[in-house]
Write a protein that binds this DNA or RNA. Sequence first.
DNA 1: GGTTGATATGTTATACTGTTACGCTTATCA
DNA 2: TGATAAGCGTAACAGTATAACATATCAACC
Lengths: 159, 159
Amino acid sequence: MTANGFHQHDHAACIETVLGTVEQACAEEGLQLTPVRRRTLELLLAEHRAMGAYEVLDRLRDEGLGSQPPVAYRALDFLTKHGFAHRIERLNAFIACAHPGERHAPCFLICRACNAVAEAPGRPVAEALRAAAAPLGFVTERVAIEAEGLCPACAVGKP
Amino acid sequence: MTANGFHQHDHAACIETVLGTVEQACAEEGLQLTPVRRRTLELLLAEHRAMGAYEVLDRLRDEGLGSQPPVAYRALDFLTKHGFAHRIERLNAFIACAHPGERHAPCFLICRACNAVAEAPGRPVAEALRAAAAPLGFVTERVAIEAEGLCPACAVGKP
DNA sequence: GGTTGATATGTTATACTGTTACGCTTATCA
DNA sequence: TGATAAGCGTAACAGTATAACATATCAACC
Ligand SMILES: [Zn+2]
Ligand SMILES: [Zn+2]
Ligand SMILES: [Zn+2]
Ligand SMILES: [Zn+2]
């Protein structure tokens, strides 16, 4: 998928592509994409922005798929653990991965005006971070790289 | 200050240096380093790790400096707003700035074993992030760059 | 002196985010 | 088929953060 959350694109196709990739990955790795997990992923995929766990839970509850926080957190844990979703630390919220399957160091751009979130190529940034950490003797295991600002649409004419 | 939280150093001097710098900065910029704010900074400075707002609040309460959450959050907001402390998004916690006064793009190394947090030179990382964001038309305003792993002390012999 | 406005603090209540614990059901596999 | 593991339902609770409003302090001004 080359689309990103900041630009117009065939979003239905965008969703289908990701869902198909995730289904295939689950089949290959023997992971159970249960109804709750699948629906949670669909909810995240529906919009290119991060959703809070309780926002997800509200939707799941409306659909009779679970009513208590652990239901949502378990599904989100599953998705993030296997790289099908990411947690945005700055927002305490979650977003569907735009490139499931590809091994990638995620790096997120958060629009403070419209709340859209896009993934940017993060490899060079993560490498720079590792390089900055190494001289201190720090062994980097995971990175969280997030930028806050304005997406192209919101940047025009806004302060 | 060249000391970082991962290595032995004269910590008393380390605290004094930062406090002095912050006092001077406040005097120059007309900022009020009130008792609550000053004490909050001292609490953060006491350890090279991030403290939660409620942990700060507990200490303040013990000392009769405030008993309700907003007291701690206001002090922490003041400190972070003016660059005297930083928020660690991944931990929902706060740490004293190791280089107050210097304009720097912070970049944090979090030890998952001992909870120590060190600042690493973040300029190259922030630049890499901006460079990754620009092609998408994103206007970067703030960055949060955090690495989780093991500090030198905890890395020896631990899995 | 008294008024005004700006800044900081005190306090209550509430909203939002996340986890523990326990019991039940379902999938998996020998 | 029976054992084991994985997933789900639910209740209770723990941790993080803010809204809203009252009070205090202090300097500038009349
Ligand atoms: Zn899309
Ligand atoms: Zn936007
Ligand atoms: Zn020190
Ligand atoms: Zn450590």
